[in-house]
């Protein structure tokens, strides 16, 4: 229950979702955040060096 309360404080799921309107484009903020996280992960996956055993990258 404590965990649920903490998560509930972070994201209120009982109210209608928020949407971004840009011309004919309409997307929920939740989906926009996920797309942003994917783009960020993609960039980090390319930028961060991959260390192998022995410390070489």
């Amino acid at each position: 229950m404590i965990g649920r309360s903490i998560l509930g404080a972070l994201v209120n799921l009982t109210k209608p979702g928020m949407y971004v309107h840009w011309g004919f484009i309409q997307i929920s903020v939740a989906n926009l955040i996920v797309i942003g996280l994917m783009a960020l992960t993609f960039i980090l996956a390319i930028a961060i060096p991959f260390h192998r055993k022995g410390g070489r990258s």
Partner: peptide
């Protein structure tokens, strides 16, 4: 293959 992009 020593790049994070290959793990996905």
């Amino acid at each position: 293959l020593s790049s994070w992009i290959y793990i996905f």
